[in-house]
């Protein structure tokens, strides 16, 4: 793997050893299948051990892993006949939020996702997944479109947060986010959100006030980044690790708090190791979520979504 995280180092070392052995064996015709097999087993055991007990701060690193599948990767994997749709009809197109209509498991749906991009060029194009007001207004427009045609909405959330820039503020970032949340809450079609990487604050909830909120096993969802929280409450960004612990931002935490509904298991070693498997698992979970709304009329979908948010935090945890 080109990129590995600090705590993955023991695995990365084993894997490079395996690669060396393979290289040697092909050059010298040595039979080292047993040794390779042993090392591979050991690597898998290490991975299971490491990923079985990731700390919150380690999850933050996994959630931000550059090779983790992003919104468009998932859309390409489980959506057919996809037609991308652009623009807020008021100011601009914002590629930080991608959207369109496609077919998912035989049903036409509207898809909306924050897209981080997977190489430098793409990252710049998508502004690293940090949307401006026109992105949130485009999302509102696409949600209204879905509502009008009775199409379920799937949102894929992966953003450090809304873009903090002068232009974004000038065009009403706060209003755009507030209205996006309001639109989520108003829909009379099923709305399923999946937190696939980073669920960064207002920029995330803008697309995630949903009937069902799924969250990938190693994704994070928080009111503020651990670094931001640390610099405000601890007065030093170096306390990010402590802040990550304190914020309760892992999928387990969020399910306990009643903020998400279901955790979607990731492949061994995280979604970045086996993107295809990650896409398959998320696809299955989304399908199950959409099936659970079968037979519910628009009014009750809307009411249940609203009741769900009213209930959050009212019972104990």
């Amino acid at each position: 793997m080109a990129n590995f995280l600090d705590f993955e180092r023991p695995v990365a070392e084993l894997e490079s050893k395996i690669r060396e052995l393979r290289h040697l064996s092909s050059e010298n015709n040595l039979n080292i299948a047993d040794e390779v097999g042993r090392l591979e087993k050991e690597a898998a055991r290490l991975l299971r051990q490491i990923y079985g007990r990731l700390s919150p701060w380690q999850k933050v690193q996994v959630a931000r892993h550059p090779e983790r599948p992003h919104a468009l990767d998932y859309i390409r994997a489980f959506v057919t006949d996809f037609v991308p749709l652009a623009g807020d009809r008021a100011f601009a197109e914002d590629a930080a939020i991608v959207g369109g209509i496609g077919r998912f498991r035989g049903t036409s749906v509207v898809l909306i996702g924050t897209e981080k991009g997977s190489d430098t060029e793409e990252r710049l194009k998508h502004n690293f997944g940090m949307a401006r007001p026109e992105g949130y207004r485009k999302a509102q427009r696409l949600m209204r479109l879905a509502d009008r045609f009775g199409l379920p909405v799937i949102t894929l959330v992966d953003t450090a947060g809304a873009y903090p820039g002068v232009d974004a503020e000038a065009r009403g970032q706060a209003e755009a986010i507030a209205r996006a949340i309001e639109t989520c809450l108003d829909l009379r079609v099923p709305l399923v959100a999946a937190i696939i990487g980073e669920g960064g604050s207002g920029g995330a909830i803008a697309l995630a006030a949903a009937n069902t909120v799924l969250m990938l096993e190693h994704a994070i969802y928080s009111v503020i980044s651990p670094e931001g929280c640390a610099s405000i409450l601890w007065r030093t960004g170096e306390a990010a690790r402590e802040a990550a612990e304190a914020l309760n931002l892992t999928a387990e935490d969020l399910r306990r708090l009643g903020v998400i509904d279901r955790i979607v298991e990731e492949p061994l070693g995280g979604a970045h190791r086996h993107p295809d498997e990650a896409c398959r698992k998320l696809g299955e979970a989304l399908e199950a979520a959409l099936l659970s709304f079968r037979g519910q009329d628009g009014e009750s979908l809307r009411r249940r979504r609203r009741d769900k948010y009213l209930a959050i935090g009212r019972r104990g945890f």
Binding site: I181, E182, I205, S222, V223, C229, N248, L249, L257, Y309
Partner: peptide, 22 residues
Amino acid sequence: GARMQEGVLSLMQMPRTILAAD
């Protein structure tokens, strides 16, 4: 803004207060 010490539960007050306005 949101009260960081209540974590994501403070973020959830965004939809909840919008529901209040509604």
